[in-house]
Design a protein around this nucleic acid. Structure first.
Length: 680
RNA sequence: GCCGAGGUAGCUCAGCUGGUUAGAGCGCAGGAUUCAUAAUCCUGAGGUCGAGGGUUCGAGUCCCUCUCUCGGUACCA
C-alpha cells in the first residue's frame, strides 16, 4: 500500500435548508469523524473539512416562500448545523460555509482557470425569461400545465402530480412564479463541462485503478460510465450563488454542484490561513491522501464530476477513495426532511443530554455500510443497556471499584504472570492490528465491534480470575490481576477514542491520566504502579422504557400530523360550464387487464364503455394487479384524443383518485348503473 | 424494462481471490458467579446460505434463469 505524508478528509457539505438528522450522521459524519480521530491518534498530519452548502435554487425558493432573504435561511441553518456538530463531537478542523468570501473567491478563480484554459464548452439555448422580474427562470420557478396529466401546477422540472420529469419547455401555459406573468423564450449562454471527454480517463482511473472502492460506489460509477457521460452545465441564470466571473455573464451564477465541492478547497484555505499552514500541500501534493465521505446520493458528483473538475484544472490530486454509504431508515420508513420523519440531531442533544456517545455508538454499530439499514428506538435502547452499560461501563466500573476497595485507588504492581494472564495479555495486544485493518478499509462497524471485544475480554478476565475470592488467601496474585484489569481499562481509552470520545475522556478522568497515542494500544505498561486514580463514577446509565416510548410516540404523532396535514391541492383556475361539458365521462367496466411489458406502472385495459369496447393504457400497475380488477366498475373520459403509449393506442382515460402516498383508487358510481351512463 | 446494490440463524450483520462439521453480537433456554448499574462468565438450541439449474473432485463463494427489497433511469393521457 502506498505511504502517504498527509491526509485530507472531507465530509459532504450539508445543504443549509434544514437541520442535520441521524441519516446524515450515520452515513457521513460519524464514519468520517471516526476515521480522522483514528488518524490523529496515529499522529498523522490530517485535516478534516466540513461546511454548509448554501447556494442553489431550493434555498432561494424557501426564502421566497417564507418572505425572507436566502441569506436569512442559510444563516439560520448554518448556525443550527454548526452548533449541533460541535456539541456532538464531530471534530472538524474547519466548518465553514459556501457563502464565505474565501469561497466566492476560490470558486471564482477555479472557474476562471478552466475558462481561460478552454476546458468549457459554451452553448446558447432558449430559456424562459421573466420580463417583469428581468431575470431568467430556474426550472422550479416556472409552473404550468403538465402535458401528461393536465395538472395545472406542474413545476418546470417535474410534475408532482404524476411524477413525470419535465423540462420547462414542455409546460403548457407556463407562468413565472416570481411575477405571475407569462415568461418569454430568450436566448442565454451557458458553460458546460464536457464530461464525455474524460470518459476514457475515468474508465482507467476508476474501473481499473480503483477496484478496491466499495462495491456500491464502484458499481454506480461503472453504470454511469457504461451508459456514457454527457456535458453538464456549470452555470445557471440565478441571482443566488457565486457570480460567473466572465464579462457579459450578469445574472448568472455557478451551478450549485460546481461550487459546492470547491467549498472543500475554500474551507481548507480558511483553515490554513488561520493555522499558518500551506493549503496547497493538502490538495496538490501527490503524497496527500484525499478521501471524500459521502452518502450514496452523492456518488456521481464525487467520483466523476468533481474529479473531472480537478483534472481539468490540472494542479490537483484526485481522491484516493470515496467511501459512500447507503441510507439509514427510521423505524422502517425512509427518513424525510419534508415529511419530518427523522431524529434531528439538535433535538436529540437537548432530549438526551450527555448521551452523545450513545447515539454515536448506536449509529456506528449500525451504519449503512453495505446496504440500507434501519434505526429503531428499541435497538437504541438495547445497545445502550446491553452493550454500553453492561459490557463497557460495567467492566470499567468493576475495575476501578475493586481498585478503590482493595488499594484505596493506588494502582498495584504487576507480579509474576500466570499462563492465563499471558494469554489475556496476548489477546489484548492482538486487537490493535485487527481494529486498524478495519479502519483503514473503512469498515467501521467491525472496528467498533472489535473495540468492544476489549471490554469483553476484561469482563471475562475478571470472571475467570475471580480476585474477590482469592483476595484474602493470595493478595500478591490479586495485585497482578488488578493491574492487568486497569491496563485493559487504560487500553479502552485508546481503542474507543475514535468512536466514543466523550466516554474515553471520562475514563481518563477516572484513571487520572492523559491521552495515549494510538500505537500504545495493546500495551500493559500504560499505567504505573503507585499511580493514584480518582473516585469512580458511572459512564453510562440505563435507558428506561418510558424514554423510548416517548420517542416512539413523538414519531407516531408526526405520522398522524402528516396524514391530517395532507392538505388538498389548491383549487384550479375557474372554468365555465361549457368547459366542463366538453368532457364526456361515462361509467364503464373493465373487461380485460394485462401488464404492459417492460414497464413498471402501465396496465393495458379493455373497457366496456357502453358504446364500444376500447383499449386504455393506464398507469395504475403499482396500485392494482391485473387479475384483481377484471369486472371493476370505473369512470372513463371517453372523448380524450387517443395517444400512443409504449406502442399501444390508448383511447381515453380512467379516472383515479390519488392519496399523498401516491396510491390510486378507482372512481366509480355507487349504484350499479350500466356501462355508458353519463357522468356530469 | 434497463443499470447498480442487496437477499446468510428470531433480529442486526461477517464470511477475502471456491476447500475441513457455515460464523459473531443481540434475543431465547440452561448453568456458574456476586467485585459490578439483576450487570458478568460458560454451555446449548436455532440456518435446505432467496428459488431452480449448471461448471467443478468440491460452491454461500463462479456461470445461467427466476424471484423479492432498496436506489438511479424510462414509462404514468
Amino acid at each position: 500500500m502506498k505511504k502517504f505524508k498527509r491526509y485530507t478528509v472531507t465530509s459532504a457539505l450539508p445543504y443549509a435548508n434544514g437541520p442535520v438528522h441521524i441519516g446524515h450522521l450515520a452515513g457521513v459524519y460519524i464514519p468520517a469523524d471516526i476515521y480522522v480521530r483514528y488518524l490523529r491518534g496515529k499522529g498523522k498530519d490530517v485535516v478534516f473539512i466540513g461546511g454548509s452548502d448554501e447556494h442553489g435554487v431550493p434555498i432561494s425558493i424557501k426564502a421566497k416562500k417564507e418572505g425572507v432573504t436566502p441569506q436569512d435561511i442559510v444563516d439560520k441553518y448554518h448556525g443550527i448545523i454548526k452548533k449541533s456538530f460541535e456539541e456532538f463531537g464531530i471534530s472538524f478542523d474547519v466548518y465553514s460555509r459556501t457563502t464565505s468570501e474565501t469561497h466566492h473567491k476560490t470558486a471564482s478563480e477555479f472557474f476562471k482557470k478552466l475558462y481561460k484554459d478552454g476546458k468549457f464548452v459554451e452553448k446558447t439555448s432558449e430559456q424562459y425569461f421573466d420580463e417583469e422580474a428581468q431575470q431568467f427562470l430556474a426550472d422550479r420557478y416556472i409552473i404550468g400545465t403538465c402535458p401528461h396529466c393536465s395538472n395545472e401546477n406542474a413545476y418546470g422540472d417535474q410534475c408532482e402530480s404524476c411524477g413525470t420529469t419535465l423540462s420547462p419547455m414542455d409546460l403548457i401555459n407556463p407562468k413565472s412564479t416570481l411575477s405571475g406573468s407569462m415568461p418569454i423564450k430568450k436566448e442565454t449562454k451557458h458553460w458546460y463541462l464536457p464530461l464525455d471527454q474524460y470518459e476514457e480517463f475515468f474508465k482507467k482511473w476508476i474501473l481499473e485503478d480503483h477496484k478496491e472502492w466499495k462495491a456500491n460506489v464502484y458499481g454506480q460509477c461503472k453504470s454511469w460510465l457504461d451508459s456514457g457521460l454527457h456535458p453538464r452545465a456549470v452555470s445557471r441564470d440565478l441571482n443566488w450563488g457565486v457570480p460567473v466571473p466572465v464579462d457579459g455573464a450578469e445574472g448568472k451564477v455557478l451551478y450549485v454542484w460546481f461550487d459546492a465541492p470547491i467549498g472543500y478547497i475554500s474551507n481548507t484555505i480558511e483553515w490554513a490561513e488561520e493555522n499558518g499552514k500551506d493549503w496547497k500541500a493538502y490538495w496538490q501534493d501527490e503524497e496527500t491522501k484525499l478521501v471524500h465521505f459521502i452518502g450514496k446520493d452523492n456518488i456521481v458528483f464525487h467520483c466523476l464530476i468533481f474529479p473531472a473538475m480537478l483534472k481539468a484544472h490540472g494542479d490537483y490530486i484526485l481522491p484516493d477513495n470515496v467511501p459512500g454509504n447507503e441510507f439509514l431508515n427510521l423505524e422502517n420508513d425512509k427518513i424525510s426532511t419534508s415529511r419530518n420523519w427523522a431524529v434531528w440531531l439538535h433535538e436529540y442533544l437537548v432530549e438526551f443530554p450527555g448521551k452523545e456517545d450513545v447515539l454515536r455508538y448506536v449509529l456506528a454499530s449500525n451504519m449503512p455500510e453495505t446496504k440500507d439499514n434501519d434505526f429503531t428506538w428499541k435497538d437504541f435502547q438495547a445497545r445502550n443497556n446491553n452493550e454500553l452499560v453492561a459490557i463497557l461501563g460495567n467492566f470499567v466500573n468493576r475495575s476501578v471499584v475493586l481498585t478503590q476497595k482493595y488499594y484505596q485507588g493506588v494502582i498495584p504492581a504487576l507480579g509474576e504472570l500466570s499462563d492465563y494472564d499471558k494469554e489475556a495479555v496476548e489477546e489484548l495486544a492482538s486487537y490493535k492490528e485487527k481494529i486498524e485493518k478495519s479502519l483503514e478499509n473503512y469498515r467501521f462497524r467491525e472496528a467498533l465491534k472489535d473495540a468492544m471485544c476489549l471490554a469483553r475480554l476484561g469482563n471475562k478476565y475478571l470472571a475467570d480470575t475471580e480476585p474477590w475470592k482469592i483476595a484474602k488467601v493470595d493478595p500478591k496474585r490479586v495485585e497482578t490481576i488488578m493491574n492487568i484489569c486497569l491496563q485493559i481499562t487504560a487500553n479502552l481509552t485508546i481503542g474507543f477514542e475514535p468512536f466514543l470520545p466523550f466516554t474515553t475522556k471520562k475514563i481518563r478522568q477516572i484513571l487520572n491520566i492523559e491521552t495515549f497515542a494510538w500505537d500504545q494500544l495493546g500495551s500493559t505498561e500504560l499505567l504505573k504502579a503507585g499511580h493514584t486514580i480518582n473516585k469512580p463514577f458511572l459512564l453510562f446509565e440505563k435507558i428506561e422504557d418510558a424514554e423510548i416510548e416517548a420517542q416512539v410516540n413523538k414519531l407516531v404523532e408526526t405520522k398522524k400530523a402528516q396524514a391530517a396535514e395532507k392538505e388538498a391541492a389548491p383549487a384550479k383556475e375557474e372554468i365555465n360550464f361549457d368547459d366542463f361539458t366538453k368532457l364526456d365521462i361515462r361509467t364503464g367496466t373493465i373487461l380485460e387487464a394485462e401488464k404492459v411489458p417492460k414497464t413498471k406502472k402501465l396496465l393495458k385495459l379493455l373497457v366496456d364503455t357502453g358504446i364500444d369496447k376500447r383499449v386504455v393504457v393506464s398507469g395504475i400497475a403499482e396500485s392494482y394487479k391485473p387479475e384483481d380488477i377484471i369486472g371493476k366498475k370505473i369512470s372513463i373520459l371517453i372523448n380524450l384524443a387517443p395517444r400512443k403509449i409504449k406502442g399501444i393506442e390508448s383511447q381515453g382515460m380512467i379516472l383515479m383518485a390519488e392519496n399523498n402516498e401516491g396510491e390510486l383508487g378507482f372512481v366509480a358510481c355507487e349504484k350499479d348503473f350500466p356501462a355508458g351512463s353519463e357522468i356530469r
